[in-house]
């Protein structure tokens, strides 16, 4: 039973990724990408990593995708954009990702309804709760957390500097001076 769930989620993940790569419309590609991330979250859940599954949905399907959608919204302004968006909402374009997401939802319900021993029998047989993740993250891997914080600092400072040149240029146009 678990194997069936696993393989169907994998097929959905692969299919959605291929579709995301081949769409010429960015919004459609994003929808498939979200489905693919949801499918991967289900895979994590089936393998006994509910915490990783939750993070996958929160961070990838949630936060990062919202950023993408914001960018696309900002790029399509005005009447033409609205007409274009209406076009995207035709049944043809949302029915397939909808079916995929519904399948994943059903899979999740089935997985939850099976007793937990069976659910996690797919790999090691042990589900990893958030507490355990935290214990190892701040136990043996504490230095990795520190190095990752420096990595974030590097990314932040770099992004600030690179983004700044566009801000300065725009201000220069309006005020005739630099900041």
């Amino acid at each position: 039973m678990i194997e069936v769930l696993f393989y169907s989620a994998s097929v959905i993940a692969l299919l959605a990724t291929i579709l995301a790569l081949t769409r010429s419309n960015a919004a459609h590609a994003l929808i498939y990408l979200i489905v693919s991330l949801l499918a991967i979250a289900v895979l994590f859940f089936l393998m006994g990593a509910p915490f990783a599954a939750a993070l996958e949905i929160l961070i990838y399907a949630g936060a990062i995708m919202v950023l993408f959608v914001f960018v696309i919204m900002m790029l399509n302004l005005g009447e033409v954009g609205e007409a274009q968006e209406r076009g995207w909402l035709s049944v043809k374009s949302w029915i397939l990702p909808g079916i995929m997401a519904a399948l994943l939802f059903i899979e999740l319900l089935i997985a939850l309804s099976i007793s937990s021993e069976q659910t996690i029998a797919l790999t090691s047989g042990v589900a990893v709760p958030p507490k355990e993740v935290a214990m190892s993250l701040f136990g043996p891997y504490v230095l990795a957390v520190e190095i990752a914080s420096m990595l974030l600092l590097a990314g932040l400072v770099g992004a600030y500097h690179l983004g700044r040149r566009f801000i300065v240029r725009r201000e220069g146009v309006h005020e005739g001076g630099d900041s």
Binding site: I147, A154, G158, H161, L162
Partner: peptide, 23 residues
């Protein structure tokens, strides 16, 4: 592998910004 990857990324992420630095 974790420290290898983190070290490598820290080095390269800072380098991306350094390479693009002169504006």
């Amino acid at each position: 592998f974790a420290s290898l990857l983190l070290g490598m990324e820290l080095m390269s992420v800072a380098l991306y910004a350094l390479i693009a630095y002169p504006d």
